[in-house]
Design a protein around this nucleic acid. Sequence first.
DNA 1: GTTTCGGTCGCACGATCGTGGGATGTCCCT
DNA 2: AGGGACATCCCACGATCGTGCGACCGAAAC
Lengths: 224, 224
Amino acid sequence: MISSTPRRITVWLIEDNASYRHSVLRAFDRMEGLRCTSSFPSFEDALPRLHDPTLPDVILLDVGLPGLDGISAIARIRALHPGAKILILTVFDAPQKIFAAICAGAAGYLLKTASIAEVAEAIRQAVDGGAPMTPRVAKLVLERFSSMAAHALRSPDYSLTDREREVLEFMVQGLIKKEIAARLHVSVHTVATHIRRVYEKLQVTTNTAAVSKALREGLVSSRP
Amino acid sequence: MISSTPRRITVWLIEDNASYRHSVLRAFDRMEGLRCTSSFPSFEDALPRLHDPTLPDVILLDVGLPGLDGISAIARIRALHPGAKILILTVFDAPQKIFAAICAGAAGYLLKTASIAEVAEAIRQAVDGGAPMTPRVAKLVLERFSSMAAHALRSPDYSLTDREREVLEFMVQGLIKKEIAARLHVSVHTVATHIRRVYEKLQVTTNTAAVSKALREGLVSSRP
DNA sequence: GTTTCGGTCGCACGATCGTGGGATGTCCCT
DNA sequence: AGGGACATCCCACGATCGTGCGACCGAAAC
């Protein structure tokens, strides 16, 4: 699957390791459709050039470099040049680093175990709107993703009745018994009874604790 | 990057399109290190075979097929054969489908725009513990991921003081004034004053509403 | 047919809360 | 020297809450 872009893709390389930087540069020079227009040993060196009139399509960034940490660098680049695809290329595979980079707006995350050819392919994918990732990184993202989603969806069973759940929802909305009674067209005593059962089932003794438990454990919808 | 597995990777193919199924089968036959041991036109056909003593390393599954929907199929397969890597191979790129599949436990998600060679490579990556994805899919996952994280982190500013936030945290834990006073080594009156200010700033009039607002808007950590 | 469960209603009492006032002291800012 | 923000403490009053106990009814379950 070769993408046919009209002109060469321009790339900046920000990488502190000189020998790695040069080998990437040389390899790119021999490639069709790819052109590394500038390279820098650190983000600080690249920073002033971010005001240039001609900016690259893709910025290849090592987030292990000295000085400003890579995550802040991503944010700064995006602020100054939102059009650039930022590809992280690093030796670090700590989930924390990876997630931080993604949340900061990186388009992809590659490990240096990848070959130069794979890096080049990843650059093309990024320009095509893809999000290239080393499989190992993809695995971590997927795991975190599904655990986040699972956490957002899990809902322990306290076997609340429909009416009890209904009352609980109103409590979560901050209504007091009197108001809940009005909404449900029943007496305050009835509401009190329902709340009593809810407390028993949730093993709490105060409205505060009940609301807290309900929200934290997703017993009611979190949407106001 | 060729993975050197001692024996051939065994694969099942579940795919309703007969001609696509056959072309994949033929292609795999010509490949080293890959063996498609069974193929089925639907999940229902594969189901009884999930009790076989010899089960595949990877199951290639089309989630657009008739009968049982693909998402439930993933869950069923994982229940019966947790060791298998499930790779989704489909024409559907609706984010909803993708996220559901991932949350159900798919190891990767490929679009049928991928070449057979790419599918084969993805199978190897999956066995190596990776999570192969078409770049387009990766992009969607990354976007959703960072928006989820951003949502989980956003926190409106009610300019609560440190002490007020501290008291609010205890309220969210379900403590009553008396208990909070004890924890902070101050009098109940002091706690009452702090709570009063919190109510003013959050624009609420009951403890319930305050706790609800605090939890929903991430004013305090949601970890119990 | 009797039991069980869910929902409804009632009363009473003490505990807790929300809010109106106030007061004192510390720290920081200018 | 003065003002503002913050934290601390106090009192009093009515509203609200938590919980003890008891009751009725309809539907479903045994």
